[in-house]
């Protein structure tokens, strides 16, 4: 290995780091989708960009209902019939990749980023 080799190596590492850094900071302006799951079933997928007013959704579970508050930035659990209320303590998720879980009620909320295309290819009327 020569000196120049090391320089190139470090330069490429730097590029990768930069790329990763840029990548993880852009998505917040991109669309976010909240996936609402009960057990293995996906109940809903909601595009947060279109939530203009904070909305509450109610997920029916074995012991009652899990109420989730959604706005255009993210979501958090408002109330749950579970004993420990860990899901509520997890607070609000706002970044793609984050999740909130309520194990006793088998509820899973996941935030993902939309693909870069926001607009549909066609609209059926």
């Amino acid at each position: 290995m020569r000196k120049n080799d090391y320089l190139l190596f470090v330069f490429l590492l730097f590029l990768t780091g930069m790329g990763y850094f840029l990548h993880s900071h852009v998505p917040t302006t991109d669309g976010k989708i909240l996936i609402v799951q009960h057990g293995q079933n996906i109940l809903q997928k909601i595009n947060l960009q279109t939530i203009k007013v904070p909305t509450k959704i109610s997920i029916p579970t074995e012991h009652g209902h899990v109420i989730v508050n959604i706005d255009d930035k993210g979501a958090y659990v408002v109330s749950s019939p579970c004993r420990d209320k860990l899901c509520i303590h997890q607070g609000k998720i706002t970044n793609p990749g984050q999740t909130i879980v309520c194990l006793p009620e088998k509820v899973l909320l996941t935030l993902t980023a939309t693909g870069k295309e926001g607009a549909p290819d066609a609209i059926i009327r």
Binding site: G19, L22, H23
Partner: peptide
Amino acid sequence: AVFSYLPLLIAIGIPTGL
């Protein structure tokens, strides 16, 4: 949008290049 794969490809390229 394909440009978004670049950081990942560069990362993979380092070990394969070595």
